[in-house]
Design a protein around this nucleic acid. Structure first.
Lengths: 331, 331
DNA sequence: CAGTAACCTGCAAACGGTTGTAAACAATAC
DNA sequence: GTATTGTTTACAACCGTTTGCAGGTTACTG
């Protein structure tokens, strides 16, 4: 069917091993031979079969990228960047969606294991224990989570949260609420402790509301609690929650940012398109995707014996959903 | 390293071929033997190596899914559905983004070719000729495009466009504009001819503006032309363009839907979140993803000798960006 | 009870590459 | 002129599975 190394060998009049080396270790082949082989290969349209190669080398040159929900706008930029960078490094990537199901996640990883050199896990739903166990069989990089022995890419949401608190304090807000994310979310914990500390420093009252579902629906559901809490500003777990909150608040007659300021997290398209445009903490998702692949390939090269960590900076993007606290002249 | 068929054979005391058949053709193995093998395999944690299997069977059980831009909100639901459905059928999927670059697209397909049984091409940027050529080597399914000899999934945007035109006519609009998509876009052509026909029937004046970039920016850029065209309603190439248009119009002092009605296409999250919420033509992207995979696996089974076509229904979702024409009492 | 048909299982050759080892040859050193 | 070294190529085994073929059992059939 397809043209193999043998066809090239025959057509060139050399042994298959010579053809093989022409591609995998060119310096072991004399220049004239190499050129002849390459010419013939090009003419025949020969492409090495990666799967066959993987059989002997143990390197598939494939990666797995597992996310909980492709349709969540947080992920596509990360996927896009990871995939583009992997391609630069001559890797192909399997993308899979676990639909937030830990069971499916583990099974998926197991069936993928033989076909990839490593896996990037973004916001995994598995327990740390399960991940550590899997980590023994295959290199992993986790994003926004910490697992013993594995490389990790962390977005410094803590710093972003501080910036947001300071921004709100500067606008004259004295009491703010934090809409926490799902139970067990690493980033939600980071936000909580950073917000607590920053609020203390700025002498603000901080109320934590949640856990909340990380969706628009979760934001809508939290609207009443926010209004009743008496705060004048809110930091939501992510943009979707913030958008839902604004919608829910609107139905209760509370205007954003007139009556209440709202800060989102992620800086997704959704936040940019929302009216009012969301003030939000920018998460460097493309950089996270690239870095995760980078760390993973590093781990692959070292046979997963080292665990590196990268922390990526976040920033605050001020747009229209935050304003001076009611009854204040502003910053 | 990992446990192979040989380990299982040794531990069970049978030949490797028996173990192989236990998994790939269980009915050729006696019940007691089969059970023994399965027990041992389970205990050892044996998992067949798909890559090795692919070498002899010629079936990798992998699929490729190629899109122009993962970050465009039109794609994620399609990717999600395709991937989920493929998994049900025991296929893994490589997802790749071409960044709208035809060159990269072709190269990508070529390197992927040996590792997949077929490829789904969504809105490919390649010429028909190039695709047809590639189609000789590998089964393909194209989405929203027609290529001779290849299976296709088409979303009936024509019907959705008719619905939109009728909806606008019902609201009392007498002159409408169509913001066309990029040159050579199949769906833009469909929209154009459907809109022309529907406008004729409803006795409306139709102005085609474009081509336009399929992005928010494209919409913003078209705002002035739309205002100057004197129409009272617009059907935009997609939600992003519609959103950009609304923004651009706003800056020119034209209110939507008060002064002018806007209809988008795709029904992405972006449209749902936009203020005003977009009236839009719903594209069945999840169904398209599933159907594409279905058709592809069909083509794979038949060795790509047949080309099936599936047409998926679209619908009009009426929300807030359309209203009665100025100076009318409405429907 | 021989003949025959199922049914199971083992053998060995693929699939498309890689790679350690050895053979062939040329060049250099003495 | 031989010994040594280095370079280039060929040979063959191997990676983990599948599969056509053949041999061995068992169970029918008449």
């Amino acid at each position: 069917m397809a043209v193999t190394i043998r066809d090239v060998a025959r057509a060139t009049g050399v042994h298959v091993s010579t053809v093989s080396r022409t591609f995998s270790a060119p310096n072991l082949v004399s220049t004239p031979t190499r050129e002849r082989v390459m010419a013939v290969a090009a003419e025949l349209g020969y492409r090495p079969n990666r799967a066959a190669r993987a059989l002997t080398t143990g390197r598939t040159h494939n990666l797995g990228l597992i996310v909980s929900d492709i349709a969540n706008p947080f992920f596509p930029p990360l996927i896009k960047a990871a995939q583009a960078y992997a391609r630069e490094r001559e890797y192909h990537v399997f993308v899979a969606d676990t639909d937030e199901d830990p069971q499916a996640e583990e099974e998926l990883i197991r069936t993928l294991a033989k076909q990839v050199d490593g896996v990037v896990l973004v916001a995994p739903r598995l327990t740390n224990q399960a991940i550590e166990r899997l980590g023994l069989e295959l290199p992993f990089v986790v994003v926004n989570r910490r697992v013993k022995g594995l490389s990790a890419v962390l977005m410094d949401i803590g710093h972003g949260t501080e910036l947001a608190v300071e921004h709100l304090a500067g606008l004259g807000h004295r009491g703010i609420a934090l809409l926490a994310g799902p139970r067990g979310s690493w980033s939600s914990e980071q936000m909580k402790s950073a917000a607590t500390e920053a609020a203390r420093r700025a002498d603000l009252r901080l109320t934590v509301i949640g856990p909340n579902a990380p969706t628009e629906r979760g934001g809508i559901a939290a609207a009443a609690a926010v209004r009743d809490s008496g705060v004048t500003a809110v930091i939501a777990y992510n943009d979707l929650v913030a958008i839902g909150l604004i919608e829910g608040l609107g139905e209760l007659g509370t205007e954003v940012p007139g009556d209440l300021s709202v800060v989102g997290v992620d800086d997704t398209v959704a936040g940019r398109l929302n009216r009012p445009k969301l003030t939000t903490i920018l998460m460097p998702t493309p950089a996270a995707g690239r870095t995760a692949v980078d760390l993973l390939l590093q781990a692959v090269d070292e046979d997963g014996r080292t665990a590196a960590q990268a922390t990526l900076a976040t920033d605050l993007v001020v747009r229209e959903s935050t304003a001076a606290a009611p009854g204040t002249t502003g910053a």
